[in-house]
Amino acid sequence: MATGMRIAFIVDPIEKLKAYKDSSIAMMRAAQARGHAVYSIGRDSLSVRDGLVSARATALALHDDDHHWYVSGETAQEALRSFDAVLMRQDPPFDAEYVAATWMLERAVAQGAKVWNDPRAIRDHSEKLSISEFPQFTPTTLVARDAGDLNAFIDEQQDAILKPLDGMGGIGIFRVRADDPNRNAIVETLTDNGRRTIMAQGYLPQISEGDKRVLLVGGEVMPYSLARIPKAGETRGNLAAGGRGVAMPLTDEERAVAEALATPLWARGLLIVGLDLIGGRLTEINVTSPTCMVEIRQQTGYDIATKVIEALEATQ
């Protein structure tokens, strides 16, 4: 085991993180438990001075109390290459500032920094559109902005899910049936009257059994998913939309999909990947800040956060 590593986490404002459910905090705690020093970095502190990428990094001491889970130590401007590993765990939206961060992080990698997930891979990997690389595993899917194309797809499927390409947490997701009197308004709104590209997928009734989050770590398939089961009257399983998380062993079909994707995604520098599957069909590939580690550990005892730190140790 590589000991005494310095591991920095680029995260949302640390005072806003919720320790009882946050996967980044679970990884911080796992890193400290294995003898590593933990630091937090705000994305807004990233900078490039005369070519060198650095940021304000704050040393953290982690505690088990979810209400007072950290104590801040010294803050210093440090070159990212001075850390043994840097984890990019910034939540979407994937906007212009997010892209700018990946540009800076890519320069840091060129200077010797070890950044996970790889910043170029994050930038090149649309969490929605990336499933088009693996059509054999997906539901029937259309990516378009033309209202005629989208309406023809709804007519063909009779029951469809429409969603923006840059959303998270279930925001902006609509279920639209062919006879929905609001379908034109929904299409117009989501596409901004044909100015924005969206995704349409055939509706999968297995959503009632849960939108399954399957995690890949360092090219290894984790054995449990978190089934996000919609609340009554909902078609979205997202926990942020009121879904209920239930940890389950992977089905044979889910494992087959995950195994097929694990090696090629890891080869691109994607250390932590969250696959979303409904009825065994792949609907999204999450790479910005995949979650659900805490819920899986609480319900099964399987510690994915520690698996992440072990994978980082193996890269040293």
Rank of each mutant, 00 (worst) to 15 (best):
D50H: 14
G202K: 05
R236T: 05
L52R: 10
R56G: 06
Y98K: 03
W266H: 14
P230G: 08
G210I: 06
R56T: 14
Q298Y: 07
W103F: 12
D146L: 08
H67A: 13
V71W: 04
I198D: 00
E106S: 15
S225F: 08
F137Q: 02
G210L: 02
G202I: 00
D149G: 13
P139A: 10
R145Q: 15
A2W: 13
I207M: 01
R195M: 09
R175D: 10
S47E: 15
L129H: 06
M5Y: 13
G280M: 07
Y39S: 03
K231T: 15
Q158I: 00
E127M: 02
E295L: 00
P92V: 11
N184M: 12
A85N: 05
H63W: 02
I229D: 05
L150C: 13
V221A: 02
R81Q: 01
T283Y: 01
G35H: 07
M27L: 08
M1L: 06
I122K: 01
G301I: 13
P181K: 10
G169F: 12
D192V: 06
Q111H: 00
A200T: 10
A152E: 13
W69Q: 09
G269E: 13
G170T: 11
S54F: 04
W116P: 04
E188Y: 06
T291L: 00
L129G: 04
D65N: 08
E188N: 11
